[in-house]
Amino acid sequence: MPILVDNNTRLVVQGITGREGAFHTGRMLESGTRVVAGVTPGKGGQEAQGVPIFNTVGEAVRETGANASVIFVPAAFSGDAIFESLDAGIETICCITEGVPVHDMLKVSNYLPLKDATLIGPNCPGVISPGKSNVSIMPRDIFTPGNVGVVSRSGTLTYQVVNELTQRHIGQSSAVGIGGDPIIGTSFVEILEKFEADPETECVVMIGEIGGNAEQLASEYVQGEMRTPVVSYIAGFTAPEGKTMGHAGAIVSGGESTAQAKSEALQRAGIRAATNPSEVGSLVAEALGVRS
């Protein structure tokens, strides 16, 4: 079974008339996603690609019963866009935008627990449940429905690994890009819990990188609570200290933030760890007992 988004997902696109918003709305529609509304303040009443546009998320929810949102608005307005979705009662919010100020995310993150909602991102590729719903900017052609869950801090590494799985005829239940920022709505552990609770997900791939200690927390969870096998990969062994490696959250600042420390935590927890992205495919096949 998929997690987070499925056939019941009714999506509203915040920033539907922007360049990125418009492009990916088209792709999500082609994937069969039920895009029920778009929001662009001032363009309410118009249509984009056959999707009705509203001035506010509140109005979109009232008129269309939207229960998920995806955010493409510029970074300066993304915090506000998340609050607007939360206020309108949206259950699943994916914020694609990169470069959202950390202080905006501090406020969002501390408001989030007061609402019954899940925020994925920001600075993430979104969530795809192959064959069911695509709330993402991920290239859907490389995905195929199946029973492997994927959770990752990096977009392109997710594609790399999923492509590897698909070529081995190993399908995916859902793939979740949780985002490359220092403060994100949902981290590894919460996604692992969802995959663990899904009886059909038979293996989970977790792709981590330098910065923070989310991989260590995930290792503890996997060791203590999870029965589903987990295969992991960590990027950034060669990253120098104090330099941001593309993702705002990918920075080595000593201690737990290094790839080495994360890798050791994974090994202590008995998690299968790949030394390069290609090896993930064979480790998953091994975990599933599939002949490659």
């Binding site: 392109t156 990969y233 060669t238 990253a239 330099k243 490696m245 990918a250 790839a259």
Partner: peptide
């Protein structure tokens, strides 16, 4: 060079594993 922060970080690692030294990200 590459597309995507994660993939490029990973490329640096793989070059180091192959016995080389990355000049940049």
């Amino acid at each position: 060079l590459g597309n995507g922060a994660g993939l490029v970080m990973s490329t640096l690692d793989v070059v180091a594993q192959a016995g080389g030294e990355p000049a940049n990200f």
